[in-house]
């Protein structure tokens, strides 16, 4: 008897749940933006009511105005341009060096034995420790900045290239061998496409580090750039300039990451991933 009661209860419960589920279909972006909007409103209100000291933390609208003014007098584009230029060149150099060296180390056991220990040793140096040396060597002009960014980008890309190549499925390589492919063809037709996902992951984390290092590079002495605005804001007691610059860094960082993500999705559409909806 008890059993019967149980089996009757089951469909009832599922009936109750069905309409509930429908109500909850709110776009995730809306859910995600509730808290930020709330925080901004509170912040704005507290600033206007002078509860927050505005000389330390100006209101969001003030910050937005600062950005608009910078854009209106034209100086903003120069700052953004030079920062993007530095990160672009540094990223290209670092990623390219990492791809070449990483492929070499991945393909040849001997190269791994030769290069890997020294690369690992260099990796254990916090990259910012290079700053004084780079300035001594190359001055505070573009070269030292770009080099620093390249160093930052290099390691994540390198590590991912090597591990991507080493983890290529041996079974697929055997298929290639069965068709008599040469080493070069094996690399081109199997190893490269198979390690592409890992390479792209490396590029994205490299880019993240690149943004970190462009800030560091511009903090250490620049006359233009978003990092320079940070320093300028500090020296002129204008927190709105600092926060405006932080916001711009965030927006640009996110935008460039989204670009890479788009490239990743395009070139990895064949992957069977959890993420894909």
């Amino acid at each position: 008897m008890a059993r019967q009661g149980h089996s009757e209860a089951l469909p009832l419960r599922s009936l109750e749940k069905a309409p509930n589920k429908k109500k909850l279909t709110v776009h995730p972006a809306i859910i995600g933006s509730i808290l930020p909007i709330l925080l901004l409103l509170i912040w704005e209100a507290l600033s206007r009511l002078a509860i927050l000291p505005t000389y330390l933390l100006p209101a969001p609208t003030v910050i937005v105005n600062t950005i608009i003014e910078l854009g209106a007098d034209g100086s903003l584009w120069g700052h953004i341009g030079i920062t993007l230029y530095r990160i672009f060149i540094g990223f290209l150099l670092g990623a390219f060096a990492a791809l070449i060296l990483g492929s070499f180390v991945g393909f040849y056991r001997k190269a791994e034995q030769l290069f890997d220990p020294i690369i690992q040793a260099f990796r254990s140096i916090p990259s910012l420790a290079w700053v004084p040396l780079f300035i001594l060597w190359m001055g505070i002009a573009e070269a030292s900045k770009v080099t620093l960014i390249a160093v930052g980008v290099f390691f994540p890309v390198y590590l991912n290239v090597v591990s991507g190549i080493l983890s290529v499925d041996r079974q697929l390589i055997e298929v290639g061998k069965m068709y008599g492919l040469s080493s070069f063809q094996l690399v081109k037709r199997i190893i490269l496409p198979a390690s592409l996902p890992s390479f792209l992951v490396g590029l994205r984390s490299g880019l993240g580090l690149g943004w970190m290092f462009v800030v560091a590079a511009e903090l250490m002495g620049a006359s233009q750039g978003l990092g320079y605005l940070l320093v300028l804001g500090q020296n002129t007691y204008s927190p709105e300039l600092i926060i405006a610059s932080i916001v711009l860094f965030a927006v640009l960082g996110k935008a460039t990451d989204a670009l890479l993500k788009k490239i990743e999705n395009r070139s990895l559409h064949w992957q069977d991933r959890m993420e894909q909806r």
């Binding site: 079974q171 697929l172 055997e174 298929v175 069965m178 496409p193 198979a194 064949w270």
Partner: peptide
């Protein structure tokens, strides 16, 4: 010689 393996071993990107 042609070889058919236990697993299909297809190239997932092709």
């Amino acid at each position: 010689l042609g070889f058919i393996f236990q697993q299909p071993r297809l190239m997932p990107w092709l």
